[in-house]
Amino acid sequence: MSQTGTTQTAAPAAAAVSETPLLRIWREFAESKLALFGLGLFIVSLLAALLAPWIVPQNPYDLATLDIMDSRMPPGSLSGDNMVFLLGSDGQGRDMLSAMLYGLRISLFVGVVAVGLALAIGAVAGIAAAYIGGRTDTVIMRIVDIQLSFPAILVALILLAVLGNGVDKVIIALVTVQWAYFARTARGAALVERNKEYVEAARCLGLKRPRILLRHLLPNCMPSLIVIGTVDIARSITLEATLSFLGLGVPVTEPSLGMLIANGFDYLLSGVYWISMFPGIALTIVIVAINLVGDRLRDVLNPRLKR
């Protein structure tokens, strides 16, 4: 039984010998239509966010262009100066589509930067803990354990209550609650790698410790970190939106998608649905896209699941 399992993979593996690892990952990734769809969706969102200043019908931050007479117009209506509010307008007469694309910029920026920083800090802490071991390991991992035993939303909430509003502060809060995941994952991966021959060989060659850590251990911990990192971008964006919704995230002057949803909450009970609904849909689309990609990456990069 097990024999048929192992030998059957022998033939295709032999055919793929010339393939680079990156190409193999891409080929396996692309086998899932759903994952490709997610990737496409994510790229479109990313482009829309990046190109927002050039494609939006209105600059939502330019108060001069706003007309209070245009406020809360339903989707499809015309503004005072004959612009179409495709997705309606908000309480200040701002075009929702423009506000959403700018909001998406902030949401994506916060998510990507927070995860990038958390990944960097977590990877260094985790790999150092695994490589140095002893007391360093104990101290770092104890902090990680305590951190992870406490719900992220509460830590972020209290932290922002202390720090106040601001994009930078949200990022600090997100990094604080997320770095521990990366630290734990990196440590786990590094512990496995540390005992492998190539690290031993590098050590015998007399390579310096930081060099072994960076050039040898880090690349081999990357697959698991990337998997967590991808899904974590979605988590960060959601968390940021939630905090902003509670009024503890980004400032009113730089509304992210979560803030836009919160602004619509006040009008929801009077049947003005579009101010909350459309930013929520945009947020969901981005998060679904990232999760689809992350899910597939987990399958492709996780050697444990290989059949």
Binding site: L34, T242, G258, L268, Y273, I287
Partner: peptide, 20 residues
């Protein structure tokens, strides 16, 4: 597919939509 949607939907927004 439903479960991917389930954990992707922002919690607070789901609440708003249910109210709506």
């Amino acid at each position: 597919a439903g479960s991917i949607l389930g954990f992707s939907l922002p919690n607070f927004w789901v609440g708003l939509m249910l109210i709506m």
